[in-house]
Write a protein that binds this DNA or RNA. Structure first.
Lengths: 92, 92
DNA sequence: GTAATACATTGAAGTTTATCAATATGTTTC
DNA sequence: GAAACATATTGATAAACTTCAATGTATTAC
């Protein structure tokens, strides 16, 4: 994946209000499992599962399996990379 | 528009490779008019016009009309706002 | 004022995305 | 091992998005 591809994918992942809500909540709590994300919105479980998959594929969110639960957290390094890119654009 | 709405809209605007290319080129050159953006890709003129409209509506890009040409530039303030948001998320 | 230039709008086609109900898979509990 | 739990997958539908050809609207140039 080129850097541009990463930017596009990550931006696309952030460009949805439900996924943004997950990201913001992860920033607040540190971690969440999938069931907890479902309580953030009124979306059905498969829909959330899909959104989470997109966030993970984008690199913004990481998953660690613990038994039957999936523990989500922010991928700080990749979010930082996106931030740095934007920072450069902001004061170009 | 709430702050979340802005983040979603701006991220969505960035989440397309052609629009990202415009933004990056604006960061490099400072300004461009619409005809110049058309040379960046192989997209048709109406398609570019549409992408530019999305960028402008998102707040990432500003337009100033000068006769028959539209002069595009980055909206540093809004890009900075997006950067700040991500920065907070990155080291949450 | 006609022609050329720069951009916007419209209408339509194809593609992608968001969403859900139903169902499947793997895991813990009893 | 049966039941409950956590998440994933599948298949379908509706909405949103990307793209273009055709056409429209200003503006400049001759």
């Amino acid at each position: 994946m080129t850097n541009d591809d990463f930017i596009v994918k990550a931006a696309k992942a952030l460009g949805d209000k439900n996924r943004l809500k997950i990201v913001k909540e992860l920033a607040k709590r540190g971690t969440m499992n999938c069931s907890e994300t479902e309580k953030l919105t009124s979306l059905a479980q498969p829909t959330m599962s899909h959104h989470i998959q997109l966030l993970v594929e984008s690199g913004l969110v990481s998953v660690e399996k613990d038994g039957r639960t999936s523990i989500l957290s922010l991928n700080q390094k990749n979010i930082e990379a996106l931030t740095v890119f934007l920072g450069k654009v902001a004061d170009a």
